[in-house]
Amino acid sequence: MYKLRNYILCVFTAILLFFAAFAAEGAFVLKFYALEPATYKHILLVSGSYDKAYNEIKKQFENEENATGIPVSVYTDTITPDYVSSLIDDQIDLAFERINGNAQTVESSASDEKLSDLRTALEKFFDDYAKSINYTRDDAYYEKNRFCLCLSIRKNSRYSRCFSDAQDREGRIYESCC
């Protein structure tokens, strides 16, 4: 009887040690591999996700070119595959800073700075379009232009409506969302 009790304790201890070693190895992998931004960046690079993201963005602009009237080249001259990959990398870094408690939010001011090039290209396009239709560029134009830039960057709205329909039902000009 004494040997049976020792045998059961040894089996129970062996099972407990097996699961403890398995958990320790999992914690090691989690800490030194899974919670590193470089791991996710490498996975995205190997799987071609950067190129897929760029192609999806480009495809969206191509699909909406007829609806918005904004040529794809306005976007693609500014947004390149390297540009998209750097935005994705910035978001990964910010997310891990948030996970580690080093950042308050995941929102990126760096992304806004990078989008300033796109904003400049769109402003140039709207100015050229306004010149081509002899549209007066006054305060109302610039307010509508700001509204259209917000929609073009964030919602990809139709720019042709911006010059005529940038007011709500009560006739107020939309507040700038940028």
Score class of each variant (00 low, 15 high):
Met1Gln: 05
Tyr2Asp: 13
Tyr2Arg: 11
Lys3Asn: 11
Ile8Val: 15
Ile8Leu: 14
Ile8Gly: 02
Cys10Thr: 13
Leu16Ala: 15
Phe18Val: 10
Ala20Val: 15
Ala21Phe: 12
Phe22Asp: 13
Phe22Leu: 13
Lys31Ile: 04
Ala34Glu: 12
Leu35Val: 01
Thr39Ser: 13
Thr39Phe: 12
Leu44His: 01
Leu45Gly: 07
Val46Arg: 12
Gly48Ile: 06
Asp51Ile: 03
Asp51Cys: 02
Lys52Asn: 11
Ala53Arg: 06
Ile57Ala: 14
Lys58Asp: 12
Gln60Trp: 04
Asn63Arg: 08
Glu65Arg: 11
Glu65Ile: 00
Ala67Thr: 09
Ser73Tyr: 00
Val74Leu: 02
Thr76Ala: 03
Thr80Lys: 14
Asp82Gly: 15
Val84Ala: 05
Asp89Ile: 03
Ile92Pro: 05
Ile92Asn: 08
Phe96Thr: 02
Phe96Pro: 04
Glu97Gly: 15
Gly101Asn: 06
Asn102Thr: 08
Thr105Asp: 09
Val106Tyr: 08
Glu107Ala: 07
Ser108Ile: 02
Leu115Ser: 04
Leu118Trp: 04
Arg119Ile: 01
Arg119His: 11
Tyr129Gly: 00
Ser132Lys: 09
Asn134Arg: 06
Tyr135Gly: 00
Thr136Asn: 09
Asp138Glu: 07
Asp139Phe: 03
Glu143Ile: 11
Glu143Ser: 14
Glu143Thr: 14
Arg146Cys: 13
Arg146Lys: 13
Cys150Trp: 11
Leu151Val: 06
Arg154Ser: 10
Lys155Phe: 09
Ser157Val: 04
Phe163Lys: 02
Phe163Asp: 03
Gly171Thr: 10
Ile173Lys: 06
Tyr174Cys: 05
Cys178Phe: 12
